[in-house]
Design a protein around this nucleic acid. Structure first.
Lengths: 327, 327
DNA sequence: AATCGCCGTGAAAACGTTTTCTTACGGTCA
DNA sequence: TGACCGTAAGAAAACGTTTTCACGGCGATT
């Protein structure tokens, strides 16, 4: 009565519900009947009930994407790439945002299980999900971050190499007191920090790596502390795009003009091209990460028992500004 | 067998499936039984099947959010606000991205119907959805844009007033040849253009309003054309955040330095604070838009036959830079 | 003290599909 | 020409939950 279902269509077309189902699924059906069904569908304005469909046929045709910070353009780019890849394969995407909160991450992973999604692509917040991923009912591919010991499918940026590239570049430009700001909550931050430490040590430079908590104002505080040093740094590396902007804002607030430290960072966001005469940074292959993660997920679904693998992609150093020095 | 369901939990707890269901739903149940059920749930690792739940109880507890461009930070901010509001009410959000493509919009609206979502919040691409929204099975609240004649629930920015503020401000700063770039695909662009035209006419200024198609490179081309005028504009207004950045990029590319036109625009994105010494713009009350849209949607669900209403929110003029002139 | 209503429980129906399972129909091969 | 096989359609079961229905027990009202 209220809503019209497959039985109504069947009645209108003079066939059985099974035939309607088969027609809609594109299976073999007598052409005449198919035409009748299609006409009936049009006429009745029938809309399939996805909940019922998913309940019966155990395939939901849906994958979950859980990111750590939707405001971070890196993750929105990932989201777009993943959605595009899914769309091309006729899959739906459910997007969730944890805001770097492990509790929300747990909640959303649980929700994904309840949704009976086919698979999950996850940018984890900490090590905890590693354990969890193991006893999870659904296949998971990690992106951007991966806990150290874990045995997971993952597609990552080579963070150590990326940090090294930045340090090497700055060193080649003549900077010697290079400080780094790294996210405290993410594995990514740790790895970039490790690369930074290794590179500075190799070059015989003094290292100053600061861990920055996730939250407003934190980065600004750390920058202020750095500038207050007896021998303030002549170059700053920011561990991601959001932090990079905060660094610039902090430097502006401190009135550091031409004499201020040079800056470099991660994530090729559109604005980085026009600010401070262009800022030098590591560009992540976002499209590729999204596509690779989706491909890996589908592989896993196809071969549940194959050994897990980690794909590591390289970043691209983009040099901007005269010498990567602020205008 | 494969998956464990409510019957298994019931068996483990020594009660009927109905009691398990009632316990999980938080209805009145004998405390002893409740405890037994909760223990059984923990012990069995039971995960409810949301598809089955949604099928039986007609309420999906889900709303759809369809935005026009997920890369536009305005829309990601909206997404966050809506999700937050939904989360607080125990609702789920499905996020879709049309990329300004009416065909995808149609597709997603249809999908929302099939998903049996409780309601939809939609940032439409063109006039077409207006007609469509009328015969849609699900309540729709429009945001950011609304077709002219339509009778819809909508929460909008007062675009005419916002444009007027910008023109007035620039005029007060002494600019006289103010040109504007407005999105060609959206209603919002048209309205902001209308406000611009009215304001310039009132002030007796020459108007030059250009319609910019959605796509890469389009804005840059228009800016180049403007600069090539016999009397190039001394100020530019960009109709949204993405366009604003493209304008700056184009000006940089053209080598327009101190002598170049002043710029102003819409959307208070983080980077606008640090580029060109800060750019003057209209900030939209994003949180409020998202919250209001959600509230309006819930009202509509509660009172399906109440008359539709449009809430118009005001933008806030943020003046940056010395005189909103480029450094 | 007996009855009326209320509350909580279990059995069973229902939600709208898809997917067996069964059956009928032709066509092909022996 | 008869048996056999593949194909396609219809009947009915199944998916996992919520909700109605009927019933039994208990406290309150008369």
């Amino acid at each position: 009565m209220g809503t019209i279902g497959i039985r109504d269509v069947a009645k209108a077309a003079g066939v059985s519900p099974a035939t309607v189902s088969r027609t809609l699924a594109g299976r073999a059906v007598d052409p005449a009947m198919r035409a009748a069904v299609e006409a009936a569908v049009r006429e009745t304005g029938y809309r399939p009930n996805l909940a019922a469909r998913r309940l019966r046929s155990r395939d939901t045709g849906t994958i979950g994407l859980i990111v750590a910070d939707i405001r971070n353009p890196f993750f929105t780019a990932i989201a777009r790439a993943v959605e595009e890849a899914a769309y091309a394969r006729g899959l739906r995407v459910i997007l969730c945002n944890t805001d770097e909160d492990p509790a929300r991450e747990t909640l959303y992973l649980r929700l994904m299980e309840e949704e009976r999604v086919t698979g999950v692509i996850l940018a984890p917040t900490r090590e905890t999900p590693a354990v969890r991923a193991a006893d999870l009912a659904v296949p998971v591919v990690l992106i951007d971050r991966s806990p150290p010991g874990g045995d997971h499918d993952a597609v990552l940026l080579d963070n150590r190499a990326a940090s090294t590239m930045l340090v090497d570049h700055l060193h080649a430009q003549g900077y010697t007191r290079i400080a780094g700001l790294f996210g405290a909550t993410s594995m990514t931050g740790h790895e970039r920090r490790a690369g930074y430490l290794a590179a500075t040590a190799r070059l015989g430079l003094a290292a100053d790596a600061r861990a920055v908590p996730h939250g407003p104002g934190e980065t600004e505080a750390v920058v202020a502390a750095l500038l207050a040093r007896a021998d303030p740094p002549d170059a700053l590396i920011a561990s991601n795009g959001v932090m990079l902007l905060s660094v610039i804002r902090a430097l502006n607030a401190a009135g550091a003009g031409q004499a201020g430290p040079a800056i470099a960072g991660f994530d090729n966001e559109p604005w980085t091209e026009v600010v401070c005469g262009g800022v030098t940074l590591i560009e992540q292959p976002v499209e590729q990460i999204g596509g690779e993660a989706m491909a890996m997920l589908l592989d896993r679904l196809h071969q549940p028992d194959a050994s897990r693998r980690t794909v590591m992609l390289g970043g691209r150093l983009i040099v901007r500004g005269s010498t990567a020095r602020r205008e």
